[in-house]
Design a protein around this nucleic acid. Structure first.
Length: 256
DNA sequence: ATGGCCATCATGGATGGA
C-alpha cells in the first residue's frame, strides 16, 4: 500500500492540481496539511468522487489537516490531549490497519519569538501524549510537515541555517524524543544521501537552485519497519503551474 | 544591503509561511 503526506498550502487553491495528482498516483492513504479551510467549506465531494473517505480538522485562513483513505476512517481525534490549541494542527485516525497521525507542526518563525515558544510547547504536548497514550508495538505512523530538518543532510545551507529555526537543537531534541519513544525516520532507512528535500521557498528560484529542506517526514513504529520498502519525494509535483511549496512524499508498505 | 513568492482576507496591505 501507498501512503502519502503533502502540505498543499491551501487545498482550495490547489484543488484541481491535487485531485489530478490523486487520480494519477492512487495512494491508499493521504495526509494533508495547510488545508486552510473550515470544515463546512472542505471540498469533500471531488475527493469522495475519486473513491476516498475523508476526515478533516480545519480553521479559517491558517493551518488545517485532513486524512484521506480508500478504506473507512475510524476513531478520529482532533488536536493533542491536555493541550488547548486554537490552531488546527493534528488529526489522528485508524485506517488501512494503521494508527495514523497527520501533523502540521508550528513553524516557529524565529528564535527567540512567541511562536518559537509555542512550537516547543506544542511538541512537548505531542511527546507527552505519545508516551502516555500511544503504543509503539502497534503499527503507528506519525507523518506530516514537522517543520524540523532532522540533520545537516536535510538542509541546503547548514552553515547559514546553524541553530536557526527549523534546525535548532531544542527542536531536534524534541524530534529525537519521538524517535526514542519507538519511531524510525522511514526516509533514512533507504538512503544516507544529502539534499533529499521536500520543501523549497517560492522565492529566489529556490527549487531550481536546489535550496530546500527535508521537513516532511514519515515516522514509523517497529512493526512497520520491515514492511517499508520505499520512501519517495514527488519532485515533479513541485513543478508546473501554481505548485505548493512542498512536494508530496510517498511511503510504500508491504502487506502485513 | 535587502529582499526577491504566494495564499488569505479583502479590495490595501498586513500576516504567515519556513
Amino acid at each position: 500500500m501507498l501512503i502519502a503526506t503533502h502540505n498543499v498550502n491551501s487545498l482550495r487553491a490547489r484543488l484541481a492540481r491535487f485531485t489530478a495528482w490523486l487520480e494519477r498516483v492512487q495512494p491508499d492513504v493521504v495526509c494533508l496539511q495547510e488545508t486552510k479551510v473550515t470544515d463546512d467549506l472542505f471540498p469533500k465531494e471531488p475527493i469522495e468522487a475519486l473513491g476516498y473517505h475523508v476526515a478533516f480538522h480545519g480553521q479559517k485562513t491558517y493551518n488545517g489537516v485532513a486524512i484521506l483513505s480508500k478504506t473507512p476512517i475510524e476513531d478520529v481525534v482532533a488536536g493533542i490531549a491536555d493541550f488547548e490549541d486554537p490552531q488546527a494542527r493534528s488529526l489522528s485516525a485508524t485506517t488501512a490497519g494503521l494508527r495514523v497521525r497527520c501533523l502540521y507542526v508550528p513553524n516557529g518563525k524565529e528564535i527567540p519569538s512567541d511562536k518559537y515558544e509555542y512550537k516547543k510547547a506544542w511538541l512537548d504536548a505531542l511527546i507527552a501524549e505519545t508516551r502516555a497514550s500511544w503504543d509503539p508495538s502497534q503499527p503507528v505512523v506519525l507523518t506530516g510537515d514537522f517543520n524540523i530538518a532532522p540533520d545537516e543532510r536535510d538542509l541546503w545551507d547548514p552553515e547559514g541555517w546553524h541553530e536557526k529555526v527549523l534546525c535548532s537543537t531544542p527542536e531536534r531534541e524534541r524530534l529525537q524524543a519521538l524517535l526514542d519513544w519507538g519511531l524510525t525516520d522511514a526516509h533514512r532507512m533507504h538512503t544516507d544521501e544529502a539534499g533529499q528535500y521536500t520543501w523549497w521557498d517560492y522565492r529566489q528560484a529556490a527549487f531550481r537552485r536546489a535550496m530546500g529542506m527535508r521537513i516532511d517526514l514519515f515516522l514509523i513504529s517497529a512493526p512497520l519497519v520491515p514492511r517499508c520498502t520505499a520512501v519517495t519525494i514527488d519532485r515533479q509535483e513541485r513543478k508546473g503551474e501554481k505548485p505548493s511549496d512542498h512536494a508530496p512524499v510517498l511511503m510504500e508498505l508491504n502487506d502485513a
